[in-house]
Design a protein around this nucleic acid. Sequence first.
DNA 1: TAGGCCATCTGGTCCT
DNA 2: AGGACCAGATGGCCTA
Length: 337
Amino acid sequence: MLTLPFDESVVMPESQMCRKFSRESEDQKQIKKPESFSKQIVLRGKNIKRATGEDTEKEEEEEDREEEDENGLPRRRGLRKKKTTKIRVERVKFRRQEANARERNRMHGLNDALDSLRKVVPCYSKTQKLSKIETLRLAKNYIWALSEILRIGKRPDLLTFVQNLCKGLSQPTTNLVAGCLQLNARSFLMGQTGESAHHTRSPYSSFYPPYHSPELSTPPGHGTLDNSKSMKPYNYCSAYESFYESTSPECASPQFEGPLSPPPINYNGIFSLKQEDALDYGKNYNYGMHYCAVPPRGPLGQSSMFRLPTESHFPYDLHLRSQSLTMQDELNAVFHN
DNA sequence: TAGGCCATCTGGTCCT
DNA sequence: AGGACCAGATGGCCTA
């Protein structure tokens, strides 16, 4: 929840403004666009220099000049302690207000950066924003998970991937991420605690060997939450269908309406953060599509949710071009069978 | 109503 | 001196 754009009239009402620090009429125009803040600050800064740096000092000097000691003689200049004059107090107040404005602006910039980050982590919703701390945690896990995929050169199964994404995240965020990725959160969590004994096969196991990744361990800093090793493979027949078919209301993620920005992806084999490039590719899919390019299988495969585009991409969209082509060929072979 | 999250204010510290 | 950065305090809003 970002605050309203900085409105000087609110934060610094004219009544509070010292007349000596008043701005030129040009600067008093209310600028409502957030991006104008910095300009406004800059402009104001110039005026501060002008106002406080020249005028006020002269006036303070004049005031000081008038000061006299107890004998009625003028005070000597030098190490004399500065008297807290009305002007100085007002000046301190004014500088405090300026510092507040800068701080506010700085925090807005920080929030903008966090918003940008929210859009590239694999769970973005305009209506249900991740908190700051959860955004950072998820981003860390995401980077870690992607780098592990690159390092190992293999993809983990979807569940492992999501589990790694969710390590250290709160329950609501875990649900959110699982929802974004079209997973059933309850079953996902059961998988996390190793209770899903009925899970026997990976969703990919119909055409890829089950992927057990001893190397794909826990993101740093989440040792106690490392359940990936105890996670059971995923039951294709029961769990997969219930998770991915979206027949259950639990599977639906109505709160994720609106276009979802794709995460940093490998588009046509080129890893890129450019969202525009991937727009067409991703606009018909959500993250569930992005991260679980499970091959269609019979009637299930006909469901629109899993229908890949003609130029489909590999799960997670993350691999080298050569790998991409090879694996994509395999996928295409499966799709066309 | 408690707790979480957030924006803002504030004073301190460091750097230029 | 002034700005950037940081952390603590505070109050508002929202939700379980």
